[in-house]
């Protein structure tokens, strides 16, 4: 497998900035709006997310290419991937509680939320659809995780200020968060055309 670093860098940048999961692919919105109220939770969530995303991308790549393709059962990929992700999350939850209780009390609650999240499921599905190699899948997972972290942290820092703003009554809460996200997304369209893959 020839390692092409420019290609990998392009993949990471494109997954994190140009095709940012939140702002152009609209995935993981439930969590995005749910945990972006405070900076601390946003940071904890992004760390957990990036780690889980990379590991689940590599796990499902291995299963997809060494088990499902030879057996010709690729049509079962939705069921298998969701099983892999949920199983992995459950396992790391249990392991973390025993091995690193301190870390578990900080990040454990996010782990439980992750298991049926659409971003985590989307990464293996896209990897399988685009037929990425193992290293490329890993890079795609990393890029997507970084992009999600960036989105969460930007949003959290805005929302902490937004709490103090005077918003018209019907717009209070979620509607305003949506409008703000729209404006950020508008800024992110500026990245399109940065790299042509």
């Amino acid at each position: 497998m020839a390692l092409d670093f420019t290609k990998l860098m392009e993949l990471i940048i494109s997954a994190s900035l140009i095709n940012n999961f939140v702002f152009t692919r609209f995935l993981g919105l439930c969590i995005f709006f749910g945990v972006s109220k405070k900076m601390e939770t946003a940071v904890g969530m992004s760390i957990t997310f990036t780690a889980v995303m990379m590991i689940s991308a590599s796990l499902s790549w291995l299963i997809f290419n060494y088990v499902m393709v030879p057996l010709d059962i690729t049509f079962l990929k939705i069921i298998v991937f969701i099983g892999v992700v949920a199983g992995f999350v459950q396992a790391s939850d249990t392991i973390m509680r025993k091995v690193a209780p301190g870390l578990y009390y900080k990040l454990g609650i996010y782990l439980a939320l992750i298991s049926t999240n659409c971003i985590i499921l989307a990464v293996p599905l896209i990897n399988a659809g685009e037929k990425y190699s193992f290293i490329e899948s890993l890079a795609f997972g990393l890029g997507s995780g970084l992009g999600f972290a960036l989105a969460l942290i930007i949003m959290a820092s805005i929302r902490e200020k937004l709490e103090l703003a005077e918003v018209p009554a019907p717009f209070k809460g979620l509607p305003m968060a949506f409008i703000v996200t729209g404006l950020i997304a508008l800024a992110f369209t500026g990245f399109s055309g940065l790299i042509t893959l």
Binding site: A169, P170, K172, G173, F178, G182
Partner: peptide
Amino acid sequence: PAGGFLAVGVLMALFNWIDKKYLKSKTVTH
């Protein structure tokens, strides 16, 4: 993509407004 967020935001606010004005039910806030 940006328009999608704006549209949903405005429609949600509209639903909240209708709810408050005519239905008087408790709105779900997050």
